[in-house]
Design a protein around this nucleic acid. Structure first.
Lengths: 242, 242
DNA sequence: CGACAACTTGACGGGCGTCAACCGGAGTGG
DNA sequence: CCACTCCGGTTGACGCCCGTCAAGTTGTCG
């Protein structure tokens, strides 16, 4: 999706409306936020660990991931992000980035000065609540990921990641949870699940052989969602979607 | 520590002062929060998954952990908590608990109505910021834990957990980071690191054999903190202390 | 048609889990 | 004051899940 095709801050406004009862006036304020909109290529860094951040990045189209590096050089992806997501809201109150954010597809992002967001949160309790709620849901997802990489076996872990991605895409209005396109490579799935790309490949094929998913390149279909939920140990409660 | 020995909401007030520039007046408001203070035994549940929460629990003395369960019954501890910690601030804006909180020692806790906290955050931007900041730091710690269980080997993982615990204790004024008492069993360390208690035992003894730590029952001494940091791949930046 | 990234597959090995036994200190009750 | 109990910690043998290494294969884009 190119620059001309995105509809301004609408993805963000929609997300805030999902997060809480935000008034029409508040929505107008969000749409009026001062923002520099840019198209960026795959692999572009939006946040870098150790850097101070004075602007907040909003993903308008495309996909991104947050990741951290171990001393060995191993990478751990700690979250994936969809259009509408605020990519570094934590820097509203934390001065230095403790992780990286990088696009995994071509993307369009809006850079908003932190000061403008601060002003908005001071003006509107509803917006402030919605943003805080967003950070709380992010934290809840991180907790689930700790459980996922800490206590589930490889097949369950990958299935869980697929379920979460599908559920979040659907809830963001990006299509159906039972048929969707994965934006990430198997190596990125590996980095998100604490596995190797080789083993991710084996497990994806196993899920396919089990009939849990159907694959055509990166297109995934989940015919029997109840079955998949059970294979994946997936209970969407932690997503706190409306 | 019994009921009579804790000094009211002081641990919380001290924590908020560490989190941001909170005025003397704000501190008074915190100390004046309506609270029911209780002593609870080891293993007591303070938050239960699936339950709605209308009160917020503040840990005044003792230690607690948050955990989630996988379908197999395996438990994953996603964080440990120290005196002064707010144990379920997420329920300020999320209606249903997505995890459990349980004491791991005898403890004294204060139950504060959510409404009183809402009132406080509405009145004071500084308190609101401090609490939000607290939830952001929690999230940062969760991200580090995802990396820890996802990409570090067992020895490093345990060493990292020890470093984090030591650093947080010191920063909370509970003693020195180079000599401290662990409140948790090896099984709880295992559940926090995604390992088994058997392997935790092996790795603790390996760390001891390497000279990284000295142990006497649950008392840990870290003679060479720089060495330990390097073994543990520990960089305290993610704790966003001071 | 060549180059490259992503995916696929097989052989092999190791880190950590599993199982099972034992130890040792703290609390309890006779 | 000593047996008994129980929980937590310790140890060893064995095996499996997943990592490593290495070699293809496929699709895409110039």
């Amino acid at each position: 999706m190119g620059l001309e095709e995105v509809e301004g801050m609408n993805p963000l406004a929609r997300k805030l409306q999902r997060l809480g009862r935000v008034s029409e006036e508040d929505v107008q304020h969000v749409l009026a936020l001062p923002a520099i909109v840019k198209a960026v290529p795959t692999g572009h860094y939006l946040v870098r660990e150790g850097r101070p951040a004075t602007e907040c990045c909003v993903l308008l189209s495309g996909f991104a991931c947050r990741h951290k590096l171990a001393a060995t050089g191993a990478r751990q992806i700690v979250s994936f992000h969809l259009p509408g997501d605020l990519l570094d809201l934590q820097h509203l109150l934390l001065s230095v980035a403790d992780h990286n954010v990088q696009t995994i597809t071509e993307a369009v992002v809006a850079w908003v000065p932190m000061a403008a967001i601060r002003k908005l949160t001071a003006q509107s309790q509803a917006i402030s609540d919605a943003l805080w709620r967003d950070t709380l849901i992010d934290a809840s997802i991180f907790r689930e990921w700790v459980l996922n990489v800490g206590r589930r076996d490889a097949k369950t872990r990958i299935a869980h990641m697929l379920c979460e991605f599908a559920a979040r895409c659907e809830s963001a209005g990006l299509g159906s949870a039972s048929a969707f396109e994965l934006p990430m490579t198997q190596e990125q799935i590996a980095d998100a699940t604490g596995l190797t790309s080789v083993h991710v490949n084996r497990m994806l094929r196993a899920l396919e052989a089990d009939g849990a998913i159907a694959r055509d390149r990166r297109h995934i279909r989940i015919a029997d969602w109840q079955n998949m939920r059970s294979i994946a140990d997936f209970d969407p409660a932690y997503l706190h979607a409306a």
